[in-house]
Amino acid sequence: MASQALAIPTRPSAMRWRGDLLFLLESLILKDFRIRYRAMSLGVLWSLLNPLIMMGVLTFVFTKVFPNTTRQFPVFVLCGLVPYNFFTVAWISGTTSIIDNASLVKRIPIPREIVPIAAVLSNVVHLSIQILLLFACVWIFGGSTNVHWLWLPLLWFLEILFVCGLALITSSVNVYLRDTRYIVESANTVLFWLVPIFYSFESIPPRLKEFYQFNPVAALVLCMRDILMHASSPPTGTVLKLAAVACATFVVGLFVFRRGKGAFYEHI
């Protein structure tokens, strides 16, 4: 039967895993981080190299090939690249996390939500290094720390919450439909062009501007530029949209995952 093709049980499995959830989360994040960096000879340096190269290439193309008037173009681009890079890498690793950790999911009755969430959070280590790089660039190009920087932790928290929500959705769908990861990869490619990374928000047609801000990645990029380049607080409307979409996605994510996880065992 067609409906059986996606046989998602309505009865969630009553798993009772008793343990230290925070300690488990920390262990899983550290594990991911250690494995990734121990396999790299230059370690943390690779985290810096990729955004620097992209920054260089985009700056070359958009100041020499297509000249434009944006000031401090490298900082401008990096404000777009850092959120975008984090978003794509975290979303992909979250999406494949259940399948990648099949041996855990099939053998230990841990709360399974923790697997995609740990996958997303392990990218935060990587992200913090890139944010430091961004700060360094701001200082090099003459910017300075100001009180509006206090917005950054809240904005990033919302962004991480948003990615966790998306990862919960796509990781559980990916168990039943293995093509999901390719759909996510394509979505990321599209997103590179739909997030104002190398163009400014002003060049977007006015009637699309409102809509644009509902994309949390775009909203974060806009807020980052306001804070780091214009030394002003981010527009309240944009922050509210970011918060609304992030919280809604996370709640939907928990719901979808809860529906899906009951039959993971049979489908991995």
Partner: peptide
């Protein structure tokens, strides 16, 4: 040995495995 990873040390693997099995820090 759930969650054991060849690149991590014995110590690290013990801690991860124990956390998975439900031991607190």
């Amino acid at each position: 040995g759930a969650g054991f990873h060849p690149y991590l040390t014995g110590r690290e693997n013990v801690r991860i495995n124990a956390a998975l099995l439900g031991l607190s820090r």
